[in-house]
Design a protein around this nucleic acid. Structure first.
Length: 104
DNA sequence: AGACTGACATACC
DNA sequence: CGGTATGCCAGTC
């Protein structure tokens, strides 16, 4: 069904680029697609997440270093993140500046 | 078909 | 810490 827009395509493409063991923020993704003010729109697109496991929205965190809204029922994925050493107990990112993946 | 409102996982003041 | 500003989407009228 691919009912996605060009904007979402960019968001998913950027999110998919996140390597394992790394995380990114909505702000970074928004900036990566050329709309640094669209962090919310990024979240909106990821929230739909038609590419569920393809687009690791669980690997995208808030700009504050918190894990983000995927905790809302998807917290099982958080375990995987912890396994990758990205998250810390309590749903916090381990040194965001150290794990943050920046699009270039 | 066109316009408005609500919702969303942020950012800024 | 709280309210306002911003961007995109979806549903509704």
């Amino acid at each position: 069904m691919k009912k996605i827009t060009e904007f979402e395509k960019l968001v998913y493409a950027a999110t998919k680029k996140i390597p394992r063991g790394r995380v990114s923020t909505y702000q970074e993704i928004a900036r990566a697609i050329g709309k640094p003010k669209s962090a919310r729109a990024v979240g909106n697109a990821l929230g739909k997440n038609p590419f569920a496991p393809k687009v690791p929205c669980h690997r995208v965190v808030k700009s504050t270093g918190e894990v983000g809204g995927f905790l809302n029922g998807t917290f099982e994925k958080m375990k995987l993140l912890k396994k990758e050493g990205v998250l810390n107990l309590g749903g916090r990112v381990v040194s965001l500046d150290h794990k943050l993946y920046v699009f270039r």
